[in-house]
């Protein structure tokens, strides 16, 4: 099974840059499974990524056209390419810091315009590549390299943000929910219009370690225990939902 996915990897790639225990390597596999199940033609795909750990998922590893861009500007680059060649299947893969901090303006405008892009956001709740600083998705109170006293600011709920801005498909799952995530990625890839999938992923080296979240396995278990389906979450009070990760499909215009 795993060997079959090697056809989607650039020849000569031996190792990846992901840290031990990084959830983005899991996400990388899940994206390829979604592509494989849909039998997408890699020659018609363009993967656009920004700066940060998640930006390395497609570039250089995917054996397709890849555009590794400036920090935060993925959606703008992708928009130009898609408008010039609508036959390209354009997929943006980047991190939460890239897409929602420095690139937040482009994210909401991309969703508003509803250009046919699939945006996959690996949310590890901090800036991993630069050594674990606070970002717009870091939970309130979390310790990072730039919030030694705990993050004093509320995080973005990226799905609510992108849904409000007009995306036609919006979903969130954690990498601990592989089958749901593959299904969601497939749906996003097949959706015409701006589709957004947030993949919650552990960053044991930069985030977990500073917040006493234990080993990579402990972090996966922690995420698993905090995930709650949207339907169940609707029955709970805000206090009960504290620290929970609400997963599910938040918008699907095709439904």
């Amino acid at each position: 099974m795993v060997r079959e996915l090697e056809q989607y990897l650039r020849p000569g790639i031996g190792i990846t840059t992901f840290c031990p225990g990084c959830g983005e390597a899991i996400l990388m596999g899940l994206i390829l499974r979604a592509i494989d199940e849909l039998q997408l033609n890699m020659d018609e795909m363009l993967f656009v990524s920004g700066i940060g750990c998640a930006a390395w998922i497609p570039s250089p590893y995917f054996n397709a056209d890849t555009l590794h861009t400036l920090h935060g500007r993925t959606i703008a680059f992708a928009t130009g390419a898609k408008l010039v060649n609508p036959k390209l299947n354009v997929v943006v893969i980047s991190g939460d810091g890239d897409l929602s901090d420095i690139g937040g303006n482009h994210l909401i405008h991309g969703a508003r315009r509803n250009i046919d892009l699939t945006v996959i956001c690996a949310n590890n709740m901090n800036y991993g590549m630069t050594g674990g600083q606070v970002c717009s998705t870091t939970p309130l109170g979390a310790i990072t390299m730039t919030t030694h006293q705990g993050n004093p600011y509320r995080p973005f709920d990226l799905c609510r943000l992108v849904k409000a801005a007009g995306a036609v498909y919006v979903a969130r799952y954690a990498v601990t929910q592989p089958f749901a995530l593959i299904k969601s990625l497939k749906k996003a890839l097949q959706t015409t219009g701006f589709s957004f999938v947030e993949a919650v992923t552990p960053c044991p080296v930069q985030f977990g370690r500073r917040n006493n979240l234990g080993s990579p396995a402990d972090m996966l278990k922690d995420i698993m225990s905090r995930c709650i389906m949207k339907d169940q979450a609707e029955k709970l009070s805000p206090e009960e939902l504290k620290d929970r990760i609400i997963t599910g499909v938040f918008r699907d215009e095709a439904d």
């Binding site: 363009l46 656009v48 555009l67 861009t69 400036l70 500007r73 959606i75 703008a76 680059f77 992708a78 928009t79 130009g80 390419a81 898609k82 408008l83 010039v84 060649n85 390209l88 303006n105 482009h106 405008h109």
Partner: peptide, 13 residues
């Protein structure tokens, strides 16, 4: 910023 970046994407397309 988005203008120049989208032009670069368009040029490669």
């Amino acid at each position: 910023i988005a203008s120049i970046c989208s032009c670069i994407g368009a040029s490669w397309a």
